[in-house]
């Protein structure tokens, strides 16, 4: 397979970024990786699980806040603070998942978004604990990871490992079952699969990796703010999945890269980035409903 050979090459290229890119672009690359990881974790349940997780960023935000709060309010080892983030997100996923999996499609999405908004509202207003709408700034990051480059390398390695883990899970029997549930939940039930429990586990895994992404954001940006859990960000991440291709594994990462690079470029010319994004989305939905990577894959398959 020639396609698989691209991955180590891409990884090596990413390793070399800090040697020839200015600092701002290294920082930008970190942001792309983080959002790519976040979008991939969403796509784990969206594209591969068929669940309309409209408000995925809650888990990203909770992961970020967990790390931030542990770093600023406790004297725990920073390592533990990083480790705690994905688990906090996974626990929240269990709580929300148990309530949501009873429903499907739009109803699932709406219940999920209202639960997510509840979490957002608490974070947004709890000034004494979360800093309210200001968020938390200047989070002390261990010296080792404090520079732009080292934060980038850390992000790169963790993102790569997380993506690899998710990929393995998607090609595992569990992953195939999940995709079977996406295609035909009724038939899955008929061949003896406990659909709801499989969906719940998928939600937990997706929440876990969203928490990883949130933790990485704290290291790269040293801030957290309530917009990390606002529903508009969730929809932006959904757009990343759509643009890249939500039935492909690397589509969301590609989508994140495209959107973040475009936003950076366009923002230097105009303040109307949202307008451009809206137009891009409309065009994609009309002409490339399976996303860019989905389109390329289709072309390759047809020969």
């Amino acid at each position: 397979m020639g396609k698989k050979g691209l991955i180590p090459i891409a990884f090596l290229l990413l390793l070399l970024f800090p040697f020839f890119l200015p600092r701002f672009y290294v920082y930008l690359s970190s942001l792309i990786l983080i959002h790519g990881l976040l979008a991939t974790s969403l796509n784990f349940v969206l594209g591969f699980g068929g669940m309309y997780q409209f408000h995925h960023c809650v888990f990203y935000g909770v992961g970020g806040y967990t790390t931030a709060l542990l770093l600023t309010k406790t004297s725990l080892s920073p390592f533990l603070a990083f480790l705690a983030a994905p688990f906090a997100s996974a626990i929240l996923s269990i709580l929300m998942g148990v309530i949501c999996v009873r429903l499907s499609k739009l109803y699932f999405g709406m219940l999920q978004i209202s639960l997510g908004s509840l979490v957002w509202a608490i974070v947004y207003r709890w000034y004494s604990f979360t800093g309210g709408d200001d968020g938390i700034h200047g989070i002390p990051i261990p010296h080792l990871l404090a520079s732009t480059n080292s934060a980038y390398y850390f992000t790169l390695v963790i993102t790569a490992l997380s993506m690899f883990a998710m990929y393995r899970m998607l090609v595992s029997p569990f992953g195939k079952t999940l995709q079977g549930i996406r295609d035909n939940p009724v038939r899955c039930e008929m061949i003896g699969v406990n659909v709801k429990l499989h969906q719940l586990l998928a939600l937990i895994i997706a929440g876990f990796f969203a928490g990883v992404a949130g933790m990485l954001f704290v290291i790269v940006d040293t801030t957290v703010f309530p917009e990390m859990l606002f529903w508009t960000l969730s929809l932006e991440v959904l757009i990343m999945c759509l643009v890249g291709g939500w039935f492909t594994f690397f589509g969301p990462l590609l989508g994140a890269a495209i959107l973040i690079i475009l936003r950076t470029i366009i923002s230097t010319y105009t303040v109307y980035w949202a307008l451009v994004l809206g137009v891009i989305m409309t065009l994609i939905i009309f002409f490339l409903p399976n996303g860019i990577l989905g389109y390329i894959e289709e072309k390759l398959k047809r020969g």
Binding site: F54, K105, L106, G109, L235, A274, G278, M281, T282, I285
Partner: peptide
């Protein structure tokens, strides 16, 4: 699909 409609109309809300 509803998901597409959500995203499309979100696109319009951005515009």
């Amino acid at each position: 699909e509803h998901l597409m409609l959500v995203l499309l109309t979100f696109g319009f809300s951005l515009i």
